[in-house]
Amino acid sequence: MTASGTIIKIADVKKDYILGKAVIKALRGVTLKIQSGELLAIMGPSGSGKTTLMHLIGCLDIPTSGKIYLEGEDVSELNEEALARIRNRKVGFVFQQFNLLSRISILENVMTPLMYAHVPVKKRRESAEEALKSVGLSDRLTHRPTELSGGQRQRVAIARALVTDPSIILADEPTGNLDTETGRSILEMFNKINGNGKTVIIVTHDPEVGALARKTVHIRDGIITGID
């Protein structure tokens, strides 16, 4: 994939968590540039800070210090309202736990981000149906997430991440709850998404995912230990 400029710039980012009286330094100064259209893996053992890094890139949280730029926009000191809008417009999330809303149909699940983007209902439905079709679930639109298999649920989550047409897809251990075969098909899906020009960042400790990525960032104890 040819890089067409920096989409994410992380400059000396630190993140502390306060747990009771203890201060946990999850990130101790991370600097990283991610090019647009990259398929990047962030690897590291549990507790390394890789999920924290993903949360910061995804605007789910702000750093204790340092700067983060998404498509040139400084997002490190924005308030919750502004962060929510950026998450909605620029980022699509795929989680290990799928994180679908269990009380509504999968079609409504996929329509939800568009609702927050104030897209009219009719257009929402069309886009959501299309996204579900692209992940091969056209025949399950009215099903609840609980009526689907793990692989199917993750495909719903992917459809939901893609439906707003964000430039960045963030996946946190997307194959963690799936069997090898299903995991592979999900990874293939990410590969395809990346082929369509989206920047895909997968946080994982699965070497198979690492093998798929063009670039792997290794992180341990809150600092980057290597990029290959």
Binding site: G58, E80, E81, A84, N88, L101, T112, P113, Y116, R160
Partner: peptide, 16 residues
């Protein structure tokens, strides 16, 4: 709480 977290991740503002 988890549902609220998911909705926020999908772009729901505090107001929403």
């Amino acid at each position: 709480t988890r549902e609220i977290g998911i909705r926020k991740a999908l772009g729901a503002t505090p107001k929403v």
